[in-house]
Nucleic acid binder design. Structure first.
Lengths: 209, 209
DNA sequence: GCCACGCATTTAACGTCGTTAGGCTGACCG
DNA sequence: CGGTCAGCCTAACGACGTTAAATGCGTGGC
């Protein structure tokens, strides 16, 4: 009994060691460029050993992504106390941008890596993403809905789903564009956080009548 | 002499046949998922034959991308005739979104893949991107500058560089976010072009006083 | 204390990828 | 008619993700 639970704990520990090594390499040199053999080498074991803990490379990636999306959800939840929904919306956007700038590696994994989030057709797979409390998109959607219910937005912006997508796209564009082209010298990049403030101010005021 | 020029023409013809087959497959199933052998099979030749015309897979990609970025530049230039700069700005944004939706694979390579556009250290490499006429960003920047000179924008939006970046980020976010998450069922995606229209309307009106 | 069991890990291998090397062939030039 | 050379072929290399079978090893029952 005691030994059995220790076994489980040890198994979880090596699972975590694999995840840590994989995260490091994924963010360091990209997902495609990271080989299973390289992950194994960092763990001082062989590549097939990883397959005893994870089905394949993609489920390894998926697990990392679900971990990190929880971190963003926690940041968002902390902003739930802001009473004015418009103020809250702006702060959510700024927090999102700051999250992306502070954790570029995680951000790239979460929002710029296609194929990182396919779930198995199992029944329980949908549950964690459906919980609106911890789901970042759910929090955004709820805030937008609250504003729309208050009648603050123009008639073209009465669909909370669409407004949420527009809003998310705006901040995502700012973060991801800067990430991809930050090193290119042919464009004189302005401070991203200030750009975010002005962009969101314009967007939100433009949505009001 | 006549035979030599015919040889060159034939060589160019097979080059183009390879490019066409590669473009079809890249668009159809993605760049990573397209193998050199698959391209060769469509051409009814073997994979190594391609290497007599292109150095490697990436230069095949680069050639297609250069063609398509020229296409984007051409689309933008065609909008130069719109006299009202604000109207032109909105149309540029919509054209950009439409371009991204029409050429998702090339868009992904151009604007979502870091390091995919590294040029050789040759001297002539910088020239095509510096020409302001065909450079899409240059056209955007020029349009924004024209609006700012006209005094249409609020004081916070007097820096053409920053405004251009905000504007580009907005449309890029819309396209890229949809590309990465289009297949996910947990979000009910709204029509992207309509979202673009409303987003740009809000953004532009929010930038005016 | 010993032995059988189970599991984490290993070695070996498969199939596929991008890419390279070397040989064949057939059209052009002298 | 012989030589040259571009263009295509077959064969193969190394690396990849992944699978199968063998190995070691700690644990539980007798």
């Amino acid at each position: 009994m005691s030994s059995e639970s220790r076994r489980i704990r040890e198994r979880q520990a090596t699972r975590d060691r694999i995840l840590d090594a994989a995260r490091e390499l994924f963010v360091e040199r990209g997902v495609e460029a990271t080989t299973m053999r390289a992950i194994a080498e960092r763990l001082e074991c062989t590549a097939p050993a990883i397959y005893h803990h994870f089905a394949d490379k993609q489920s390894l990636l998926r697990e990392l992504v679900t971990q990190d999306i929880g971190a963003l959800g926690a940041v968002f939840q902390r902003l739930g106390g802001v009473v004015d929904p418009v103020d809250r919306l702006v702060r959510l956007g700024l927090a999102y941008v700051r999250f992306g700038l502070d954790h570029p590696q995680h951000y790239r994994l979460l929002f710029m890596t296609p194929g990182a989030k396919r779930e198995l057709p199992g029944e329980a797979a949908v549950v964690p993403i459906e919980t609106p409390e911890s789901d970042a998109y759910g929090i955004l959607h709820a805030t937008v809905s609250e504003i729309i219910r208050g009648g603050t937005f123009h008639g073209d912006f009465g669909d909370a789903e669409r407004v949420s997508q527009i809003y998310w796209a705006a901040v995502h564009g700012l973060v991801s564009l800067h990430m991809v082209f930050a090193e290119d010298r042919w464009i004189e990049w302005r401070d991203v956080e200030t750009s975010a403030e002005r962009m969101l101010a314009a967007l939100v005021s433009g949505m009001m009548e």
